[in-house]
Design a protein around this nucleic acid. Structure first.
Lengths: 210, 210
DNA sequence: GGTTCTATTTATAATAA
DNA sequence: TTTATTATAAATAGAAC
């Protein structure tokens, strides 16, 4: 009925991961992706026998949640994560993706047990650090041999460090360009046979402008 | 080698959504899907300006979490009473279907102090171990006295590594953006008026588009 | 515990109800 | 605010490091 004759739809279009301005589209997307997220969580739980909890507040303020076995059970198990303030954890670290996650919950009851557990963990850390210190320059050596040593833990950076980090990246970007130029002018055979136009750069300096 | 010449891979195969028996495959799947889940949560948050928290315990007992702005903030908002530690009225919610409303199911028999203490202690240990793993070399590296760990030695990279390095940088750039967003949205101390739709970040993400 | 590489299976952006 | 339709963009099962 009146499909004009062209394709009935352009199909899924690629979108940038940034706040959707259009209120209507944003709402529809939230509804769809929320269901998708819950489905994924459910599958992860079933497939891997994991306990998973997901809680989401829409910008409108509505709550939606999924939990296996229940949101509360999972949250409760996670909550005691951080002890008091007597001895603050080394640093709030990241694990997921873009979001941060650090908690500060006090519970006078189990302070002793927690403190003991923490002591144990800290001792472990200290020992590890001491060991690394002893290794000395070997550390640098090992780092250089690491496959992806440049995968920085961005989330560990705070607001104060981010700007500096960005500037460092810019310098890095420039050096990459220069180095790419050098390699390009030197000319060398190409090992991997490209098949698609998707990625697989061929050492063209223009390919390194990110 | 022995690629015979046929397809290098059968590609993704359809699987049933039920516990994966093979321990190895289950672990790999957990790792992959956990990352996928966090990514989805991050995107939902960014695209729709939603607050999302995801907590997952692997069958091995390791914890993994993602939160926007933080797991704790979302959880607290989800279950305010729990934060006070005053009255237990936990909610096992499961919405996302029809109504588009919120549900609350109470569980009267769940405040066993002793048992909770044990749970907490175990979770504490598990969480610390997970954290240790995540921070990994980053910590020891920092302790080894390396202020500018991100100053990569580009010249050390060869033609074969450069493309990979560039892709890594692109991923890094994206993470920086997401982190900047996180910091921006986290800039607010505490939201007194829990009703709004527009945000007013003090940290402009556009400052980090290099 | 994680990552890389393909070939497929899924999730969805656009639209219209 | 959730759902049905398409045509594509993404996620990921398997296998191997």
């Amino acid at each position: 009925m009146v499909r004009s004759r062209g394709r009935p739809s352009l199909g899924r279009q690629r979108i940038e991961i940034r706040r959707i301005d259009n209120s209507g589209r944003r709402q529809v997307t939230f509804s769809k992706r929320r269901n998708g997220l819950f489905k994924k969580a459910s599958e992860l739980s079933t497939l891997c026998g994991a306990s998973v909890a997901v809680v989401a507040f829409s910008s409108a303020g509505n709550v939606f949640a999924f939990g296996q076995p229940t949101v509360d059970a999972v949250v409760r198990r996670f909550d005691p994560l951080h002890a008091d303030g007597a001895d603050p954890a080394p640093a709030a670290v990241e694990d997921g993706g873009g979001g941060g996650d650090d908690v500060v919950v006090a519970d006078p009851e189990e302070l002793d047990a927690l403190r003991r557990a923490e002591e144990q963990t800290k001792a472990q850390v200290a020992a590890e650090q001491a060991r690394m210190r002893d290794v000395g320059d070997k550390v640098t050596q090992a780092m250089a041999g690491r496959p992806l040593w440049w995968e920085a833990d961005v989330e560990a950076l705070g607001e104060a460090e981010l700007p500096e980090f960005v500037r460092a990246l810019e310098r890095l970007r420039d050096r990459v360009h220069r180095h790419a130029s050098t390699l390009a002018s030197t000319a060398t055979p190409l090992p991997p046979p490209p098949e698609q136009e998707e990625e697989v750069p061929e050492l063209d300096v223009s390919d390194y402008s990110f």
